[in-house]
């Protein structure tokens, strides 16, 4: 019994690190959205397996061990000392292996999230109750405000397809959060600090950024469009914005 346990423990530990390392080298995914989707599939499979095992066992036992008579009593096993330890250690090793596997996959995805590509275009984001402002590298700005004057809401964030974008973000008042479902990124904005996220618009797309940290009455109206457009169109747009600003 003891020998078996030791063997099991070792097998579990070795397997877990092997799986963890294997997952690290698999695939050549580079941008947050793709790493997210890849990891999500992995985790979902994991969850369905675990949920399936526990759920199926519970259903099977609930049916199989229905009381045969009103006075029936259960015959659950009284575990011996080594069985008790086995039923503690073996599951723990399995869970630990799974944790390490998930942790390793999670860590590689995380590295993608935090390492901004060299050629990324930088945009400064300012959040305030309750609108967004974007400032491009050349000083041109764009904004979006649902309650803008005379229906003038603004253009939101316009970015060229094919260039990674890094956002350096801060807030003028309370905590807000910049979340874009399309690119699977999100990070809070706070007064007095600068946080960042990056994403990679690979194809033309129009999506939304929504404020995802509670910030008062208009929290749910603090959103803006994010338009990924062909590079030429982007140049056109930013030139137009620059001109508008020069004219005041």
């Amino acid at each position: 019994m003891k020998k078996m346990l030791t063997a099991l423990t070792w097998i579990g530990l070795i397997m877990s690190s092997a799986i963890a390392m294997a997952s690290d080298s698999a695939g050549v995914i580079k941008d947050p959205a793709e790493s997210w989707k890849h990891l999500w599939m992995e985790v979902m499979i994991d969850l369905y397996i675990m949920g399936g095992i526990f759920g199926a066992l519970a259903i099977y036992w609930l049916i199989k061990y229905r009381a045969k008579s009103p006075d029936a009593v259960g015959k659950g096993p009284k575990l011996t000392r080594s069985q008790r330890w086995a039923w503690a250690i073996v599951p723990c090793v399995l869970f630990l292996a799974d944790d390490l596997y998930l942790g390793a996959s999670g860590w590689s995805a995380w590295n993608v999230y935090r390492n901004v590509p060299e050629n990324a275009m930088e945009v400064k984001v300012t959040g305030r109750m309750w609108n967004w402002e974007f400032e491009y590298e050349d000083g041109t700005t764009s904004s979006y405000d649902v309650d803008g004057d005379e229906g003038e809401k603004g253009d939101g964030l316009v970015v060229p397809v094919g260039t990674p974008v890094v956002l350096r973000m801060t807030s003028e008042d309370v905590v807000h959060s910049f979340g874009i479902t399309e690119y699977r990124v999100k990070e809070d904005l706070m007064p007095g600090r600068i946080t960042y996220i990056w994403f990679y618009p690979k194809k033309e797309a129009e999506s939304w950024v929504t404020c995802t940290e509670f910030c008062g009455a208009n929290h749910s109206r603090m959103y803006a469009p994010i338009k990924a457009v062909p590079a030429a169109k982007y140049q056109e747009w930013i030139a137009k914005r620059a001109k508008e600003e020069a004219e005041g």
């Binding site: 947050p32 790493s35 997210w36 990891l39 999500w40 985790v43 979902m44 994991d46 969850l47 675990m50 949920g51 998930l102 942790g103 996959s105 999670g106 995805a109 995380w110 993608v112 999230y113 959060s177 979340g179 479902t181 699977r184 990124v185 999100k186 990070e187 996220i197 995802t212 940290e213």
Partner: peptide, 17 residues
């Protein structure tokens, strides 16, 4: 089980809030 994706930092960067 749905706590597990939330525990994984990269996944939570989308799922949070």
């Amino acid at each position: 089980l749905t706590g597990i994706p939330l525990a994984i930092t990269a996944l939570d960067l989308h799922l949070s809030d």
